[in-house]
Structures are given as structure tokens and as C-alpha cells.
Design a protein around this nucleic acid. Structure first.
Lengths: 354, 354
DNA sequence: TTGAAAGCGCTAACAT
DNA sequence: ATGTTAGCGCTTTCAA
């Protein structure tokens, strides 16, 4: 074989996207109509189970469709119908276990109702986030958005372009946009009550990112509780949201002389746990530790982590439910709040005599 | 205001999907053309930077587009062009940390090239998996498929309908389909070599799901190594792939008198670690443990887990690269194999005198 | 360089 | 009950 004798560039490339199983162009509604000797409208009706087509005709259409291996084009339907049977999830960080779980819940729920899920990670580009979201919106019927950092005013403006929209961990004044939030205050309250019941009177709070709203929420409650109840002394330590942050603070925690620590989240708690272990400090005998979120691994540390469970999967499913309602034309549901559930495990115990 | 005086049901509902920011119908190419006093073709050219439109005209078009807040409809473009700028990822289980990482890598890489990602979890429905995949394929330009359980023959048939297609952890004879696999054998080999160098001579293998190909791979190497080298005694224990499975086997592991365990994956290793801890068996002083995958948490256990790292993120990115090549009309790349990288951490140490 | 017109594949009035 | 027709919004020959 000489190179020059190779098959010349034919029209094959033109058909690339339109090829079916056997190398034939994929069947269209017109071919089926032709094969069945009916109009395209009738084929459409049959394929959608619309109105009552004469049984005999319907059978003929179905037979033709089967023979041609026909299936309606979702893209063409989307254009004609003005809807795509697709929704988008936009999250800042796919590495976050909580968002992963929201994703799963949303994906499953949407899938059960025949809807596909488009996903976008807005990563660290707060700047591009709006563009990303608007772009995503045009390819689908609605959006579920988790955008912890977008300023409230920008969010308000965005909301209209993105509608139908469901917000996660954000609310918008006016109540026009359904939103699903976690009651951080209640979660922290439960954690503190638990620690107090164990006799702890000096508690360290390992703070998350200062800019984070949820960190603010947590800190506010802690301050209020320590002041109002006068039941314990609060020590705030700037920390972060990652394992390494918590790990690095272990020494400082010990230095405070506190008997318990409330970590910003589970990851930080894990880090602290690990750091204390390396320092030879026994948990919970010498110091108790609590986290927040109850990510899957919280049950698997040694000792298992006392934390408060954010029902991320349920939030994902609920986001679908509300978005779906919007798609169906129902009025926006009022903002909902999820109360975390306290999970008492091995990392918390009676306060040591300090 | 009396209810009866409320605004009557108007055509508003009809416009739901076509509403823009201000409640006006979203701009179309026709409106822009009209506003700019040109044809739709010209608007199209300008929007796509096609051929050379007279600068003055182009400016007029752009101005009109801006004024009307116009952006081309992705759906309409998809229909006209026969491509969607979207790809799909199909995975059996979104809860699996490795797939989550593949997802991230793929999402990022595709995003950098202006493509969106549709995601589908085939969950436990091996049955529906084919339908799901074919359905997904019609909404996008190509597929990345991880389908550990689908029988080879079914996969072969599916491959043509799904093309362009990139396979993860599966290969197809004939080389027509790019595939990305993990070299389980090499990974296990490294782990065993490491354990042997530490003096271990009796090793337990905590087996994964019997049906899993990757479990077979691992077992095969272990058997071969123990026979050929005669360097160690192998004990196979049926286990599973989850934390709980490993946890339940801790006692049995101790019962074998082995000094080291090679777990099917990191999760099983975590479970075993936890179980041994509860039994008061010191790791690695009394027993060494190794995992497989190096999921993010492997670094965070106590002791940190010795394991072998599967570059899931890189695999995700590479899947994009190969799928993209296919979309561009390049020939299929040959199957690639990723060699895991050994990560020696605290869970493995010198063999105890047994 | 620009415009007219014919699709892309499907749906939904409107007739019959 | 079925067919005809006119879009959905955009791209792309083909002429001019």
C-alpha cells in the first residue's frame, strides 16, 4: 500500500456526529414518518404518547421506529420545547465532602425525574462565577447555586437571570428565591450543651476563614452563649478550614489549658486530633474535640469524632424538589433551614480536672 | 385589593422560559439583526468572529447585541452545528473518592476548553446502565465511561453507540477505544516489595468483591509473587471494599499470625486499622497495614496509611485530553496505563518477631 | 462583503 | 384521528 493510494478524504467526516450504531446516519423523525407512511406529526404523537392515534397506525410507527433504531433527538426537542430536561449545580469546590454529598442527592433526585445534571465548579474564580452561572443557565432549565462568597448585591442581581434558582446556604431578602440553609447556630448550640454537660468550662473555638458567613454564625453563637450563660470561658483561635490548619493548632490548643475544642468543621477537627495524638495528648481523656458536618470519615477516626451532622444528601434532594416545583410553575417555597443532628462519639468525654 | 381584581391569567406563563433579566423576552439573533439593520447571517458571523465583516457593520451589530443584552442560544447552536460543547461522565458510584477525583480532573480540564460536564451515576442499576449511557450520549458530544461491572461483550456493542468514548479501568480488544487503566499489578508489586524489605514473611490479603476485575488483578499478582519468589506466605481472606468490611476482619487478621496485611483498598485498610486499634494491636509495631488508592484521607489516619497512589485527578484530565482529540477527529490513542506511586507512611514498619 | 434561503429535528397550533 | 404548516434560534451554503 502506497500512501497516495489511501482512501481520499470523503464526506465521512461530515457525518461524524450523525452516525448511528451501524455507520448509517441516525434516524430522524422524517425517515420514520416516511417508512411508516405517515406524517411527522403522527410520529411525534406516537413517540410522546400524545392524544389517541389509531392503534394500527401507532403500531406501524413503532415498528418503523424500531426498525430504524430511532430515538428522538433531545437537542431538537429542547429547541422546540424551550426546555432541556437538564439542571445545573454550581459549587465553589468539588473537593468539599459536603458539596459532594449535595451533588449526589441532587443527581439522584433529578435522575429519578428524568432530568440530567450539569455540573460546574466555580473554583476560586469568584470573578468568573457570574459569567459561568449565566452561561450554564442557558443550557438548562434551572440552577442550584452554592456561592458562599458572592456579595449579596451581586447575588440579588444574578438571581433574576438565573431563575428558576435554588440557593444553598444563602438567602435573599424578598423571599422570591427558595433557599436551603444549615442552622449553624443550633448545631453549635447542641455541641456546646453537650460539652457543658460533660463538665467542660473552658472551650477553644478553632475559627474558620474569617470571610466565611458560616464562621461568623458559629462565632456569634459561641460569644453569645459564653456571655449570656456565663457557663464557660471561650477562647478563640484563628485557624482555617483544612486538616493542616487544625493540625498546626494542636500545640496552641494545649497551651490554652482548655479541656475541649469546638472545631470549625470536621477536617479541622481531624487535624487537631492528629496533632494532639503526636503530642501525646489523650483524646478525650485530656481534651475533648468536636467537629461540624459529619462527613463520612468522621465515624472512622480514632477515636470517632463527636460532631453534628449536616444532612447534605437530603439538602441536595430537597434542592431538586424545590427547583422542580419552580419548573412546574409553582410559586417559590419559603426559605428552609436544616438543623444539624448531634452525633456523640468517642472524641468527647468528661472534662479532665484541669 | 380584592382577589377578583387581581391581574387575570395572561400570556405570562407562555413566556416563562423565554424571559430575560428585565422580564422582556430574551433577545434572538433576529432581533439583533433587525436592530442593527443587517441580516441574521451577518450577526452570526460577527458573533463568531467569522470571515471579515466590514468593521463598521460589525460595530453596529455588537452595539445592538449589547443594547439588547443578546447572547446566542447554546441549544439552537447545538442543533444547527450538531455538537453541544458538552461531554458526559458516567460512573457507578459518586460516593467513591477515586471517582470523585476523576470527576474533578475531568470537569476542570473540560471547563478549561469551554466544555460542560454532564454527570450520571449508574448506581446499582447495571441493567439500566446501557440505556442511561445511550441516552446521555445523545445530549452531548462524547462520553467518559467507568463501568467496572458491564460484561465485556455488552461493552463492545455499547462502545459503537457511545463513540466518541473514553474508557476508565476497562479496555476493549481492537484498540478502537482509548482507555485509561491503573496498573494494579505494579501497585501491589511495590507494596509487597516494600513489606518484604521490612522483613515480613507472612502476609494477609483482604480481598475485595470477588466479581471485581481489579480484585482479580491484585490476587493474581499476589499469588504469582508468593509462588515464584517463595519469599512469603500468602493468606487470602474474603473481605469487601468498605470500611466496615475491613473493620470486621481485624480479629481474623490477628488470628492468622501474619505480620502484615495488604488491603483491597484504603477504605478496607482504614477499617482494619480501626479494628486492630480496638483490639489493642499496635500498628505498625505488631502488624503492618497497606491500602490502595491513596484517597485524600489516607494521610490523615493515625498512623497515616502506607498505600499506593492512583492518580485519579490526572486520569480525569487525561480522559478529557483523549476525548477531545477524538472530538477533533484524531485517531484513537492507544490504551494507557497508570502506574500507582508507592506512599510509605506510618502504618508499615519492620516485621515483629512472630 | 453581505443577504436570501434552506436546513438542523422536533413540536404544536390549526385544519380537515 | 391525521396531515399541513409554521416555527424554535442559529449556521451555512449559495448568489449577488
Amino acid at each position: 500500500m502506497v500512501a497516495a493510494l489511501g482512501s481520499p478524504p470523503g464526506p465521512a467526516a461530515e457525518w461524524r456526529w450523525a452516525m448511528g450504531d451501524n455507520g448509517r446516519p441516525t434516524a430522524t423523525i422524517s425517515r420514520v414518518a416516511e417508512a411508516a407512511g405517515v406524517s411527522r406529526a403522527t410520529v411525534s404523537r406516537v413517540m410522546n404518547g400524545r392524544s389517541t392515534v389509531a392503534p394500527e397506525l401507532a403500531e406501524r410507527v413503532l415498528a418503523a421506529a424500531r426498525a430504524l433504531d430511532y430515538a428522538p433527538s433531545p437537542v431538537a426537542r429542547s429547541l422546540a420545547l424551550g426546555r432541556t430536561a437538564t439542571i445545573s449545580l454550581i459549587v465553589p469546590d468539588l473537593a468539599n465532602p459536603t458539596f459532594q454529598e449535595v451533588l449526589r442527592g441532587l443527581s439522584q433526585a433529578a435522575g429519578e425525574h428524568g432530568h440530567r445534571l450539569l455540573i460546574a465548579e466555580s473554583a476560586e474564580h469568584v470573578e468568573d462565577e457570574e459569567v459561568l452561572a449565566v452561561e450554564a443557565r442557558r443550557r438548562c432549565d434551572g440552577i442550584v447555586l452554592a456561592s458562599p462568597r458572592l456579595p449579596a448585591e451581586d447575588l440579588g442581581r444574578l438571581a433574576q437571570q438565573l431563575s428558576p434558582l435554588v440557593l444553598i446556604n444563602r438567602t435573599l431578602p424578598g423571599g422570591g428565591v427558595p433557599s436551603l440553609s444549615v442552622d449553624h447556630a443550633a448545631g453549635i448550640g447542641d455541641l456546646v450543651a453537650h460539652l457543658l454537660s460533660l463538665g467542660h468550662r473552658k472551650i477553644v473555638y478553632l475559627a474558620g476563614p474569617p470571610a466565611s458567613i458560616s464562621n461568623q454564625d458559629r462565632l456569634d453563637v459561641l460569644l453569645r452563649l459564653s456571655r449570656e450563660g456565663r457557663a464557660f470561658e471561650l477562647v478563640e483561635l484563628a485557624c482555617g478550614s483544612m486538616f493542616e490548619d487544625g493540625h498546626a493548632m494542636a500545640g496552641a490548643v494545649v497551651g490554652t489549658g482548655a479541656t475541649a475544642v469546638v472545631a470549625y468543621n470536621d477536617m479541622v477537627a481531624f487535624g487537631t486530633l492528629s496533632g494532639l495524638h503526636e503530642l501525646g495528648v489523650a483524646v478525650p481523656q485530656q481534651i475533648s474535640i468536636t467537629g461540624f458536618d459529619d462527613i463520612p470519615f468522621a465515624r472512622f477516626t480514632t477515636p470517632p469524632l463527636t460532631t453534628t451532622a449536616v444532612p447534605a444528601n437530603a439538602i441536595g434532594r430537597d434542592a431538586w424538589t424545590r427547583l422542580w416545583a419552580l419548573l412546574e410553575g409553582s410559586p417559590a417555597t419559603p426559605p428552609a433551614t436544616y438543623r444539624p443532628r448531634l452525633q456523640v462519639r468517642g472524641s468527647s468525654g468528661r472534662a479532665a480536672l484541669s
